[in-house]
Nucleic acid binder design. Structure first.
Lengths: 137, 137
DNA sequence: ATAAATTCTATAAATATAGTAGAGTTTTAG
DNA sequence: CTAAAACTCTACTATATTTATAGAATTTAT
């Protein structure tokens, strides 16, 4: 499941992607437009900034804007940024790998292989869902 | 991600599937064989029993045994039993559907459609991973 | 009757999630 | 230079969930 953070992040990105290219959106504007608690959204936007999806302009008339094409922002990236691994266990993860503590050896881990198959399928599907693809015509 | 419960459940089922048909496994035997905390495993086995994956014999010489073919127990079922929805949000779920509270209308939910695509792909993949398929030769 | 096992309920401890509060910094405009 | 308006940062709180553990009750075989 997606955390609220990840869901809100997607909605915020969707909101930004729907604005004019040059438009800078204030947090309060995004919060109201996408129905997200404003203070919570502040944190999320900072995370998105640190992840190089958006950038910001400070001070009066400041706000947020996309710096990555809506065609290039995928569900996989946002999920990873806010929720971590896409794989079902850390031992099957590409980006958040951790050895399983309750298996004698990695080879003996009975679940790893199957979960890597799931990970590959899920990742492929998630990389096909972009912000652009979510925008309804 | 899978919860520990789901992971332990899979390992326990794998353990049972590897025993002789007629063999009844005690909890302590499964716990030691699959490296699962015994008291925690008790709860998990009861859940698996309620889910009609295993059955049990009480009293002395009692224990647990599979009542569903290892070819018919899928990762999807176990994940759902212990962790709930496979979909990334409740509004995109088949078995754990809930209306999104922060969308004005269901139609307007910008994420739902994309997440249903992911759900279908993930579900299909998870239904292909069975206990039998996880057993190494 | 006793031993060995499952079953059930309650509880504890640790962690993660969701959200809030408030002070600090930056920028613009007058 | 000052005030307003915005982002930035750190800390905190409240709640829920997860991961167990404890112990009594029940069932069954001998």
């Amino acid at each position: 499941m997606l955390s609220h953070k990840a869901k809100y992040a997607l909605k915020a990105l969707l909101y930004l992607a729907e604005q004019d290219e040059s438009h800078i959106s204030k947090t309060i504007e995004i919060a109201e437009g996408a129905n997200i608690p404003k203070k919570f959204l502040e944190q999320i936007l900072l995370d998105l900034k640190r992840g190089h999806f958006v950038s910001s302009k400070q001070g009066k008339f400041g706000g947020y804007y996309l710096i990555k094409s809506k065609n290039d922002i995928t569900l996989a990236e946002i999920h990873r940024l806010f929720d971590g691994a896409i794989a079902l266990l850390p031992c099957a993860s590409l980006n958040f790998y951790e050895r399983c503590t309750d298996c004698k050896t990695e080879e003996e881990c009975s679940l790893r292989h199957g979960l890597m198959i799931i990970r590959d399928e899920t990742l492929k599907a998630m990389q096909n869902i972009t912000i652009a693809s979510l925008i309804k015509k």
